[in-house]
Design a protein around this nucleic acid. Sequence first.
DNA 1: CGGTACGTTGAGTCATATCAACCATAGTGG
DNA 2: CCACTATGGTTGATATGACTCAACGTACCG
Lengths: 236, 236
Amino acid sequence: MKQQEIHIPLCEKCSLESGSIFKYLSPDELVTLNYEKDFRKYVRGDILYQEGNRISGFFCIHSGIIKVFKTGFDGKEQIIRFAKKGEIIAYRSVLSNELACTSAKVIEDCQVCFIPSEILISFIKTNSTFALELIKLACHELGEANSFITDIAQKTVRERLAEILLLLINDFGIDQEQNLQISLTREELANIVGTATESVIRLLSEFKSDRLVELNGRRIKILNKKGLEKISNVFN
Amino acid sequence: MKQQEIHIPLCEKCSLESGSIFKYLSPDELVTLNYEKDFRKYVRGDILYQEGNRISGFFCIHSGIIKVFKTGFDGKEQIIRFAKKGEIIAYRSVLSNELACTSAKVIEDCQVCFIPSEILISFIKTNSTFALELIKLACHELGEANSFITDIAQKTVRERLAEILLLLINDFGIDQEQNLQISLTREELANIVGTATESVIRLLSEFKSDRLVELNGRRIKILNKKGLEKISNVFN
DNA sequence: CGGTACGTTGAGTCATATCAACCATAGTGG
DNA sequence: CCACTATGGTTGATATGACTCAACGTACCG
């Protein structure tokens, strides 16, 4: 078998395929981006950056899955979001010019491009369409954060777990056998929902008893999406 | 006594005094802003906009205090943030081009300027410094939202209440008699912390017993800030 | 003077966290 | 190859923080 080549993706192509924010750049800018970026590979467990770091650039995900989380007072993780193909992370710290307020860790082996801060800033300054789209991105994420605050503050763990499952279905999809296309430990699930690992385990097996899901280790098969929606009290 | 005149503030002056984002506009742009803005007065209880509204502009606060909140599943409010002199609200919805994801209600009688969306967008397009500052603003707020998610998910109500008191001290200050310079109902406090009104009442009187605060109806006098910091588990 | 909104307190309940024990699996090193 | 260890998953027992419900006090307002 032929040795696997390291194939560095071309920004011009990738930005369209992945639908990343960079599709709003001009051809010239894409050439610059392609030249300046640094292609990197990481495996599960690798850390891209850590809370408190001064950040000199940000990452655009080409493949794989990253979890972005904060570490709470007692060392417990709170997962803020996931990033996958076409998404960027650490841009918040770069743009607000603050230290990283989150850490990022690889969940599924990934290929990413590291892009120096200055490039991003210069694009914002010269390309107003791009700037506007970036603002849109940040503002959209802000809206999601606000929703999540309300949910955590007001909903029960049960409701939130159902909601998170729906959110994961939305973000990562399910295969032809209805299996959720992201593999998380029970602890990670707990760290999204904001609860204890044991609670997730108990609730998941309740969902299983209620024929909402089927469990096979980390594989979660969705049997009744409508049922989950009902539990989660989300309308849309 | 002479009748009080309605004095419409001049953007050129106000932006500097209040330190609002508009201080990054050029003199010409400020003239435009001043011409296009609509000056309005509201009293306690008035609603500036509501969740689900399509927004045609945003607000810059000249005086008074506004609470920005989401309404949860069962009608309970979750206060997301407050806005005071120099701050802008509803810009998130304008920029992400989404329906309002929050409502805004007057806490202390206020004077605000309403600014049509197009103006904001055009400034972003023509003034890259301004655009960058706006991005900074959104990204900073996003960082705060992420922190709050972690807090609500991991801290006890007691810790959160102490933290919120500190945050209010920071945002609104205390007078020479150590009184917190914002007046909130117990219910509103509960809706920030994300708990029941009764819990806030009980914990506040615990804080009082512990000589951390003194209570006089809605007036909260801060006796021991260090003590609150210790309870809240915040470092800084 | 009755009404409305807010504040307070007590009692009871329940969801969820915590603690502890145990199993399964896989990787490691001698 | 086997003991050893680490990691993750599961279950049960127990504790408790926080919510809910209900009653009542207080203050302001028309």
